[in-house]
Design a protein around this nucleic acid. Structure first.
Lengths: 193, 193
DNA sequence: CGACACATGTAACACGTTACATGATTTG
DNA sequence: CAAATCATGTAACGTGTTACATGTGTCG
């Protein structure tokens, strides 16, 4: 839902057309989070269908098709800005899932896997650190996104360390961790929605 | 892509059927990341179509339809386990985007917004802290997921603080931050893919 | 004119969610 | 038998990606 509302936010500063919105979005995120234009146009169509934006007169002019935010759109935007991300269903973290299910894979060396991912995460931190160093100091968007990534990656490293020691503390030998995990389970069979 | 590969991981410990896979996945994540069964069945269909799993004989028996992982499936699983999350397109963080685009919304008080989200994030940390305290100490999955969330939320709080001071340091008054942000932009017009 | 950048779109697909429909098995 | 539970699926929709198609405007 990020793109949909981001377009509303950009339109709240005045009418724009598709390509312009795509560029401003990428500018806002310092080009770290690219956006494909196809989605911009389909999202604009849905926003118009839902009455959150409306097409401009456009009378003459070239191929550009401007959009203006509506009052309903401003309401929606305001709500979104103040709504915190859902706490009960935080976004599934791919790396966390990877390690959790690896514990159920027979023969998988989860500790080695964690260390491998840790090395890669540290490498990513170097990348974003350099990105910050080389950035235009006025590019607030890029600096903020790089900050966010660095804090996030730091949390990943800390978690990998904590996970490693938790896993090592398990009653079974590391290579057969899954056996223990498999043994405990099988309660709460059948939720059925 | 998490669900697809998680199912492969669970099947690598032996043949299973749909509902069973759904339950084991939720067990693995300590019920923090729920999974809807509909997706499990459609994913299994795609996995079978792609030759990563195959249906079991099933001859007699009830409605249960077992699946077995194939050699191709084991290869795919192994690759996935060792592949780090893509570094060049990290998942878009909704909260980060929210603050970034809010800086372009005329009249938006970004600092107040950041503080509001900070409060909510701290509340979420309390929630997961309590979850850990009340958890079965043998439920490694739940403990690991709670750890991951706590580290992640801590990073969010740190980022919000850093972002707040960065925003306050901007040349323009907080309430008109967007004006400055709008002014700088509009370079690199037209990438055209 | 021809090449290139600007600008908008569509098609096909993967993944995810919600909601609904349908059998089979157990058990009061 | 009836109701609950177990188990599998489908339909409709939103979101996101990739790739392709198409038109317009400018400029050498």
């Amino acid at each position: 839902m990020s793109v949909r509302h981001s377009l509303l936010a950009l339109l709240s500063a005045g009418p724009k057309y598709g390509l312009q919105l795509g560029q401003e979005f990428e500018d806002s995120t310092g080009e770290v989070w690219p956006l494909n234009m196809g989605q911009v146009y389909t999202t604009l169509q849905r926003l118009e269908r839902d009455g959150l934006v409306e097409g401009e007169d456009q009378s003459a002019a070239g191929p550009q098709k401007g959009f203006r935010i509506t009052d309903a759109g401003r309401d929606e935007l305001d709500t979104w800005l103040h709504t915190p991300p859902d706490r009960w269903a935080p976004p599934r973290d791919e790396l966390v899932i990877k390690l959790l299910v690896a514990m159920r894979v027979p023969g998988a060396d989860v500790v080695a896997l964690a260390q491998s991912h840790r090395r890669h995460t540290v490498a990513m931190m170097h990348h974003f650190t350099r990105l910050k160093e080389e950035a235009d100091p006025d590019d607030v968007g890029l600096l903020l996104v790089a900050d966010a990534e660095l804090f996030r990656l730091d949390a990943v490293v800390r978690w990998l360390d904590a996970a490693e020691s938790r896993i090592k503390r398990l009653p079974t030998a590391p290579a057969e961790v899954q056996a223990a995990v498999n043994r405990r389970s099988r309660r709460r069979v059948g939720a059925g929605r």
